[in-house]
Design a binder for these strands. Structure first.
Length: 238
DNA sequence: GCGACAG
DNA sequence: ATCTTGTCGC
């Protein structure tokens, strides 16, 4: 399955050039409505680390059936060490390796990490979205920049704007009562309210099901194929 | 200058 | 991210 790249660029860049790439790409982010009520196939993207190796795991979660219907993975050496603000340069290359191995095209991708809630508005979800020109949402487990507009209520469903330098960059969302919130921000081609609604719709626990599944799948080293009999034949018979 | 800092 | 047992609570 093809995933054409837009605004492609090198990945092995010194920090100042990586920063320049981010400053450039931020201008291509678009906020568009996404009919989240009608979305059926939601992608989950995550990367796991083992020693000096990275493994990207991508799943396609069928909201109608409530299960994973496709998955793909890719492994490779650690490109650069982790540096706050430059996560995408470390993880996206492996994600791009895994994507073409999918059989099913997700309508939107939920990415483990921030979208535009980033010092230069170029968190991993925004970066991936612009490269693919495909809808993406960032779902992070901890903040990178910004502060709450008001305290967050303990009940599932509450959400507060995350403000930074006079702008709303995302929302802290309580996906489960009495559990630490997640930080949701747009990646590309979605609006913030739609992103929050979608995240809530596919969350049973703290993290959305597609990301939970991608997390488990990314940690399953050495396997790259789809789960047996889960997708190919059904896809061909449409 | 100092502290903070997704995964 | 990863290294890791038990433990508290629904």
């Amino acid at each position: 399955m093809e995933w054409p790249l837009h605004h492609a660029h090198p990945w092995d860049l010194p920090e100042d050039q990586a920063r320049a790439v981010q400053q450039h790409l931020r201008h291509y982010v678009r906020a568009e409505p996404l009919a989240w009520q009608q979305v059926r196939w939601v992608g989950g993207v995550d990367v796991s680390v083992r020693g000096d190796q990275l493994r990207a795991g991508i799943v396609v979660y069928d909201c109608a059936q409530g299960r994973v219907v496709d998955r793909a993975a890719a492994e490779g050496p650690e490109p650069i060490p982790y540096k706050p603000g430059f996560l995408s340069f470390r993880e996206i290359p492996r994600i791009l390796d895994a994507l073409p191995r999918l059989h099913r095209r997700p309508e939107v991708l939920l990415v483990d990490g921030h979208g535009i809630a980033h010092p230069r508005h170029m968190g991993i979800a925004a970066h991936l979205g612009v490269l693919l020109d495909w809808p993406t949402v960032g779902v992070a487990k901890s903040p990178l920049v910004g502060h709450f507009a008001r305290p967050l209520k303990p009940e599932r469903g509450d959400a507060v704007p995350v403000l930074w330098r006079g702008q709303t960059l995302g929302m802290a969302v309580r996906t489960r009562t009495d559990v630490k919130p997640v930080w949701v921000s747009i990646g590309h081609r979605v609006t913030l309210p739609d992103a929050v609604a979608l995240v809530l719709r596919c969350s049973r626990y703290r993290l959305p099901e597609p990301i939970r599944a991608a997390h488990r799948w990314a940690a399953q080293w050495g396997v790259f194929d789809v789960p047996d009999g889960e997708d190919e034949t059904a896809d061909e018979r449409g």
